[in-house]
Design a protein around this nucleic acid. Structure first.
Length: 717
DNA sequence: TTAGGGTTAG
């Protein structure tokens, strides 16, 4: 019976029981060759348990054989872990079989890198007397797999310097690094390299190019590569569809999906993952259903965790939370990502209680530890965004905080700051005591939050205590920021003389934040004389900042001191000061739009609509009694132009954009880089009433929560 | 019936 007719298992039994030589008396093949073939076959079948004993049998069996250069590469490939790779490495070295064989060394490099042993791989690679292209490729691809993008690109450079031309494998290994590094120029260079080396038509190279261009947002280039391809496979289609989907061109992504089917290419899980994200992005509920059906028909939702999670994410993004939940319940091997997706979905839809319930459920029933940082990352985000958005939801944020198992100083700082900006000074102080009880060491950031909390809540004495104990108990030397908080605290409470005295007693030079706090307080309380003192210091410390001139001018105007207004204006004119460009951003359906004050060289795509909305609002505001406050305009222009300038402030553009692009009564969240001007502050009160929306503006100073014609900040302008 | 390297992901 010829040995080739034996089933594989029989080979294994024969070989491992020492009957190799007797396997087949008619077979002329030398026993070593036969053994090598078997080792190779087993390792290709990923059966290290069968492959590795063969080596032992060869070396120490009844009839020992000396392995040759062909024996080790498949063994390296089959190594189940780094320690067995190291043992094989030592064995090959002992037998003198490693470095003479480029093949063996190259595959050992690959083996080490599979287990993240970069240093060992480098050592073997550097010791190789000569290296061929596959050896370079093993090193390059391994570095890429270990996310060592910089090293990989550097090594590729070394290869180029040594005059060795890479091949298609080289390029498709290194190309993804451009995306990881976010390096568009490098992507173009690699593309040129590919064309120069005649690899521009290689399937894998093109696929990698499309993927990289897509990830870097270079859709035109991705499309160009795609269109030029003579042969496309599943990966090609997946890459181009994903590129369009990630780039927000969802209609094109869906169209390509149909094109793919017309070409007779069968979609796989990854195709549907992109498609799910595309239909979710364009709010296509019906599309979502058909994507889900497609996935179910193939059983992917039950069998493939990525597909299942993608379905959860899709429904969550469409605010179909119940559907998301149902899908999740049917994902058999739910992991932390699955839960995180659902919880994030709840959060995005404002269902904080559901999020917390789900979180509890996950911990109780799935014995899954939340990824370290899952909530640590969510919480600060919420203290800055959602948390502030819904003052009433502060309780839920606190609950989330309670749920967190490991709380660091940073987490505590976040929740204390969150409480502080909403005026819950006393609660912030309570939490601080709790923090002390738990033995968490506060840092200087904690005290900035605490002092700001005291300031916002008008707790002057408590603030003074904090400032004191910070130094005596914790040995933290106050920095200018702490002093500025103190000045702000005295100032808001109307204790302007205290504030000034405090500044004069400072052991360090007061900076612009300190004087700025005083100026702000002077404006609130209408103290022009002290305001002058503060602004003079500010003009010296921060002469470029027009904001202080605006405040001063506004103050003079409020008091009817028009000559003061003129003086400030001429100061601004004489120095030819340019206002820091103000911008505001707003997030609608997960994408952020940024608006700049005034007319733009490149107007927003919805410019006309936004202007119409603003005009419409202005008319309604005026009918309710709104009077524009031109003291916030320093430009010397006609009155109607001033009105135009005011209503084109970036925060108003953002608000108008939000009104146009969200359903009625959806709360609007605006972030502004500068302080909201007094006129916009007033206007936003009216807008909140007219549109019956909550409008939350986070400016460089604080949160403003507008609702039903009022603002939570309580400042009067 | 003898050998090493490659592209897409929630």
């Amino acid at each position: 019976m010829p040995s080739s007719a034996l089933p594989r298992g029989a080979h294994a039994v024969l070989v491992t029981s020492g009957h190799l030589r007797h396997l087949d008396p008619h077979n002329q093949a030398p026993p070593l060759l036969l053994a090598n073939s078997l080792i190779s076959a087993f390792s290709r079948a990923a059966l290290p348990r069968l492959a590795l004993p063969l080596l032992r049998r060869l070396l120490a069996g009844a009839h020992p054989l000396r392995p040759d250069g062909f024996t080790f590469p498949p063994l390296f490939r089959a190594a189940p872990g780094p320690s067995s790779a190291a043992q094989l490495h030592a064995c090959a070295l002992r037998l003198g079989l490693l470095h003479p064989s480029v093949f063996a060394s190259g595959s050992l490099v690959h083996a080490y890198l599979r287990f993240g042993r970069v240093a060992e791989a480098y050592r073997v690679f550097d010791e190789m007397p000569q290296r061929d292209v596959p050896a370079w490729n093993a090193m390059l691809s391994g570095l890429c797999r270990n996310a060592r993008a910089g090293d990989a690109v550097a090594l590729f450079g070394r290869m180029v310097v040594e005059g060795l031309a890479g091949d298609a494998v080289t390029l498709s290994s290194v190309m993804p690094m451009c995306a990881l590094l976010g390096d568009r120029a490098l992507a173009l260079v690699m593309h040129v390299y590919a064309v120069k080396h005649g690899l521009g038509g290689e399937l894998f190279v093109c696929n990698a190019l499309i993927d990289v261009y897509g990830k870097l947002g270079m859709l035109e280039q991705a499309r160009w590569v795609f269109d030029a391809m003579a042969l496309r496979d599943l990966v090609t289609w997946n890459s181009i569809i994903s590129a369009y989907e990630q780039g927000g061109k969802v209609a094109a992504a869906v169209e390509l999906f149909h094109g793919m089917k017309e070409c007779g290419v069968n979609p796989d899980v990854l195709t549907l993952v992109s498609l799910a994200s595309a239909v979710a992005q364009c709010g296509d509920g019906r599309g979502a259903k058909s994507v889900h059906c497609y996935v179910m028909r193939r059983g992917w939702d039950a069998g493939d965790i990525i597909a299942g999670n993608a379905m959860v994410d899709m429904y969550a993004k469409l605010s179909e939370i119940e559907a998301a939940q149902r899908v999740l319940e049917n994902v058999p091997a739910r992991d932390v990502v699955s839960w995180n997706t659902l919880i994030t979905g709840y959060m995005q839809n404002g269902l904080f209680n559901e999020a917390i319930k789900t979180y509890n459920h996950m911990q109780k029933h799935e014995s899954l530890k939340p990824v370290q940082g899952m909530f640590v990352s969510v919480l600060p985000a919420y203290s800055n965004l959602d948390l502030y958005a819904k003052c009433g939801k502060l309780a839920e944020a606190m609950l989330l905080f309670e749920l967190m198992s490991r709380r660091s100083t940073g987490t505590w700082n976040a929740i204390i700051a969150g409480l502080g900006v909403h005026g819950h000074g006393a609660k912030a102080l309570d939490l601080f005591s709790q923090m002390q009880q738990e033995g968490i060491e506060p840092d200087h950031v904690t005290f900035v939050s605490l002092l700001a909390a005291c300031s916002h809540a008008g707790l002057v004495d408590r603030g003074r205590d904090c400032f004191h104990s910070m130094q005596t108990v914790y040995g933290i030397v106050p920095i200018a920021k702490h002093y500025a908080c103190m000045v702000d605290m005295f100032g808001r409470a109307g204790q302007l003389d205290e504030a000034l005295e405090f500044i004069q007693g400072m052991p360090i030079k007061p900076d612009s934040a300190v004087w700025g706090a005083l100026l702000g307080a002077c404006r609130i309380h209408g103290n022009v004389e002290m305001g002058k003192l503060a602004s003079q210091n500010l003009y010296e410390l921060d002469p470029e900042n027009v904001g202080y001139y605006v405040l001063m001018s506004n103050m003079y105007a409020k008091m009817g001191k028009w000559d003061g207004v003129d003086t400030v204006r001429s100061l601004v004119r004489r120095q030819n000061l340019q206002k820091t460009p103000g911008w505001s951003s707003m997030e609608v359906k997960g994408s952020v739009s940024v608006f700049y004050s005034g007319t733009q060289a490149e107007p927003h795509p919805q410019h006309e609509e936004i202007q119409r909305e603003l005009q419409d609002l202005l008319a309604k505001m005026k009918s309710l009694g709104y009077v524009p406050d031109y003291s916030f305009v320093l430009q010397d222009v006609e009155q109607d132009e001033k009105e135009q300038i005011l209503s084109n402030h970036s925060e108003r553009l953002a608000i108008a954009f939000g009104i146009i692009n969200t359903p009625p009564r959806t709360p609007l969240h605006v972030y502004k880089n500068l302080r909201v001007c007094g006129d916009c502050h007033n206007a936003t009160k009216y807008i909140s009433k007219i549109t019956d929306r909550e409008i939350i503006v986070r400016d460089s100073n604080r949160f403003h929560h507008f609702k039903d014609g009022h603002c939570s900040c309580g400042d009067f302008w």
